[in-house]
Design a protein around this nucleic acid. Structure first.
Length: 493
RNA sequence: GGCAUCGUGGCCGAGUGGCUAGGCACAGCUCUGCAAAAGCUUGUACAGCGGUUCGAAUCCGCUCGAUGCCUCCA
């Protein structure tokens, strides 16, 4: 039987602002769309957090036994740099700066994006469509919206008529805005605006002669508006009504609001059952942002080559750090917080490593069944990874006690513990054991065994000068000797 | 200015109207030749001021503060 039949998952739906029982439209199947990156520069860590959050959600849904189709797009068509008519799309702008083809920019940063996510152990989505690969579909949707009367053409551009749409529908329901308020608060824009109303947004933009990225359309050469691709691709691969749409909080308005409007205008159906929004990662208390320069790149964290942090952190440590906060909470990145996470991560991984060699007996002091359900309860409560991790540390404590012969565990419980722990740590949280020394050679292991035996021999002979010298000098090299009940082990920091 | 979110012990970070998550740091103890590791124990925190309630960090109101969105951004 599939796990989801027993495990009652609840998710926080941004549309209602409440936690709702998760019931997919088609039992057993989940369609999930997440807004991907615009590939005009390297992904920064804040981007990664969002994708990591949805990776965890993807993994947990699959763990529960759902068949998940996860679609995450690549925005490679470029968006306008600003709202003015002379707006230049950011991919073309970057291409000009670097004197390369737009598609060369796209390729370079797509590759960087994939490499980076792979380092953080993100699973690839089921489909990763590109905006430029779906121009025809986007034009199709524009036609439908025009036919329904919710858009108008102006000088080769097509705009969505928000005011008209709002007469029969509710524009702003996702972000809690009212169109009247928005109109009242709008600053006067340029007078020669093609738009009927400042709230209207582009479905298609006429390409100026110098604009490189352009496609033919019924309205002349141009390029699609930036909200449209997600509607086109989510509809194509997941249908007109699908289960989950995710993205960063900053996309809630206007991007996701416009997606809802486009879909409702063209199909008459609301596109998404559950809207999930991942919150921002801040740096020094401010949102990470490409445009303001307040950001840190993943490569800089992993290499330690930056002015913000005191040292390098392994990708899994960063992932663990992020999983220690709920995906809907703002998380502030700092050196102290990362260091604390690193210590905790190492303790968790060490316990994982010790699990296999635990001795079993005929009774258990640890109620593994209850513990396991606690883990599921945490995840079922809107993917509460911090609480899950708290439970994982409960298991760590028991593992250490059993290792020291202070507690007992049966063979069955040990198997269940091991199985559950590995599922949650490696599979659901996507952590990898990246503690130093894990993949070191047999030679090192042999040398260490020799040193350890020499030291223990010296201790047996009460030659503490020698034994301490071995211990202290190894420690100075970053190799820590740990004396346990069943002998001595070592870790490399 | 409008909309929204948030303000938790030294730091990070969960949280349900009453049963004091967790991690890191700190201290004491156990263990140890001494340490380290591990285990145990302690810390009574919830921005401020009112209110509702038998009872609120958790509900309501106000004040202060922070952040996000309102223009591209995960």
């Amino acid at each position: 039987m599939q796990l989801y039949k027993n495990q009652n998952l609840r998710v926080h739906n941004s549309l209602s602002g409440k936690k709702e029982v998760f019931e997919p439209i088609n039992e057993g199947y989940v369609g999930m769309y997440v807004c991907g990156p615009t590939v005009y520069s390297n992904v920064h860590l804040g981007n990664c957090r969002t994708f990591m959050s949805f990776d965890m959600i993807f993994r947990y849904l699959k763990h529960l036994g759902y068949k998940v189709r996860y679609v995450r797009n690549i925005t490679d068509a470029g968006h306008l740099e600003n709202d003015a008519d002379e707006g230049e799309d950011k991919i073309a702008k970057k291409a000009k700066l670097e004197k390369i083809e737009p598609m060369e920019v796209v390729q370079r940063y797509t590759v960087d994006f994939h490499n980076t996510l792979q380092k953080f152990n993100l699973q690839p989505p089921s489909i990763e469509p590109t905006a430029t690969g779906h121009i025809i579909e986007q034009i199709g949707i524009i036609k439908e919206i025009l036919d329904k009367g919710y858009a108008y053409e102006a000088n080769g551009s097509v705009y969505f008529d928000v005011v008209k749409f709002n007469e029969q529908n509710e524009y702003g329901k996702l972000s809690g805005r009212k169109l009247e308020d928005m109109i009242a608060n709008t600053r006067e824009l340029t007078a020669q605006d093609e738009k009927k109303n400042p709230q209207d947004f582009a479905l298609w933009k006429r390409a100026e002669p110098q604009h490189i990225m352009r496609w033919p359309s019924p309205w002349g050469d141009g390029f699609p508006g930036w909200h449209l691709e997600c509607t086109a691709m989510s509809t194509k691969y997941l249908g007109e009504h699908f289960d989950i749409h995710g993205g960063g909080m900053d996309l809630k308005f206007p991007h996701h609001e416009c997606e809802i409007a486009q879909a409702e205008a063209s199909t008459g159906k609301t596109p998404v059952k559950y809207w999930l929004h991942a919150n921002m990662l801040t740096l020094n208390g401010k949102k990470m942002s490409k445009s303001t320069g307040n950001n840190i790149y993943p490569a800089e964290i992993i290499s330690g080559d930056n002015d913000i942090l005191s040292k390098a952190y392994a990708p899994s440590v960063v992932r663990f750090f992020m999983m220690q906060a709920h995906y809907t909470s703002i998380l502030d990145l700092s050196d102290d917080a990362l260091q604390a996470s690193e210590k905790g991560y190492q303790r968790l991984m060490e316990a994982m490593g010790n699990l296999d060699s635990l001795k079993t007996t005929d009774k258990s002091d640890f109620d593994v069944d209850t513990w396991q359900q606690n883990c599921y309860d945490a995840m079922n409560d809107d993917f509460n990874t911090p609480v899950l991790i708290a439970h994982l540390f409960d298991a760590v404590k028991h593992i250490n006690l059993i290792k020291e012969d202070k507690e007992k565990i049966t063979k069955e419980d040990k198997a269940l513990l091991q199985n559950t722990l590995e599922s949650f740590v490696y599979y659901v949280l996507g952590l990898e054991d990246q503690s130093a020394g894990k993949d070191d050679s047999k030679i090192l292991t042999g040398v260490m065994e020799l040193l350890i035996s020499l030291r223990n021999q010296a201790r047996a002979n009460k030659d503490f000068d020698t034994s301490d010298k071995i211990r202290d000098e190894l420690n100075a090299l970053g190799v820590q000797i740990k004396d346990g009940k069943d002998g001595t082990t070592f870790t490399i920091n």
